[in-house]
Amino acid sequence: MGVRPSRRLAVFLAALVAALFLFPLVARSYSLYLAMQILILSVFSLGFNLLFGYAGLLSFGQAGFFAVGAYGCAKILLAVPNLFLGLVGGIVAAGIVAFLLGILCVRHTRIYFSMLTLAFGMMIFSIALKWRDFTGGDDGLVGIPRAPLEIPGLLTIGVANLEQYYYVVLVVSLLSVLGMYRLVHSPLGLTLQAIRDSESRAEFAGVPVRNYRLVAFTIAGLYAGVAGALLAPLENTITPPIAHWSASAEPVMATLLGGIHVFGGPIVGAFLFFMIKDIIVRFTQYWLIWLGAIVVILVMGFRGGVLSILVERLMPWRPTRPMVTRRKA
C-alpha cells in the first residue's frame, strides 16, 4: 500500500508551500514569471505522467490539449472579461477534445498509441495554424487580458499585475497537485497501475480496460487544459507553436528528468527543466542539442530520473521497485 509520507517530508512540504506563498515578497518579476512557468509545466507533466507512469501510455500529443485549454481560455477572455469563466471554459474544452480523440487513441497501446497521439496533436497544431478566423493563424491571439477572477455571488479578485496572477497560478496548481495525489492513491489509481502492469490480467480481473484508459486520457487532457488555460493570461499572447509536438516534448522531458515512478517526479522535473534551460541559454542559442543529450543520457543510464535516485538514497527503508518492466515476448 502507499507509503505514508514521513514526518520530515511533511515538514519539508509545508515549508515549501509556505515559501511559495511568500515568494512574491522577495522575488523580482522575472523570477515570478519563471516560477509560474514551472508551476504550469508541473501541472502539465503530472497529467502526462498519469498516462505514462501510472497507465503505461506514452503520449506525444499532450501539447494539443494544452493548446485547446490556452486558446479556449483566450477566446473567452477576449469576449467576456472574467478569468474564472476563461479558466473553466478552457479546461472543459480541453477535456472534451481529449475525450473525443481519446476514443480513437485508446483503442491502441504502446507504439501505436504514441504515434496516434503525436498525429492528433499535430492535427490540433494544423487547426491552430490554418483556421485564421478563429485562431488568428500564425499571429495567434493577442491582447489576452488578465481579467478579474469573478465567481458570481462569491468573490471578485483583480489579478491584473504579476504578483496577483502568481497567486492564481499557485492556488490552481496546488489544487491540481493535491487532486492528482488523491487520484493516484485511490482505487482508480490502483486500477490504472494494474492495467499498466498487465492489460490482460486486468481485463480478466473484470476491468473494462479501454474505458479506464479513456478516463486516464481525459484526465490527462484536463490537466493539460489547466496548464494551457493558466498560460494564456500570463503571456497575453498565444501562437500555434504551443500546440506543436516539440511542446508536447516538454512534459515528457520534465517527467523523465524528475522520475516517472515517484509521484513528485514530474514536479521536480519541471523545476530542473527550467533551471537547466535557464543556465544553458546563457551560454548558447543551441539549447535543444543539450536537451537531446540529456534525454539520451537519461534513457541510456538513469531511467528512474533524479527523484527516484534521491528517494533511494534518502529513504532506504522504502521498498525500491523495479525501475523498468521487461518487454513481454
Binding site: 487532486g179 485511490s186 482505487p187 490502483l190 486500477t191 497501475q193 494494474a194 480481473a205 473484470g206 476491468v207
Partner: peptide, 21 residues
Amino acid sequence: QNVLLPVLCRRGRTGVALTPV
C-alpha cells in the same frame, strides 16, 4: 494490491477516484 483489484472490481469500486485505497 494484486488481489485487491479483482475484489474492488466485483464491488464496483474501481472507479472511486478521490479517496485513498
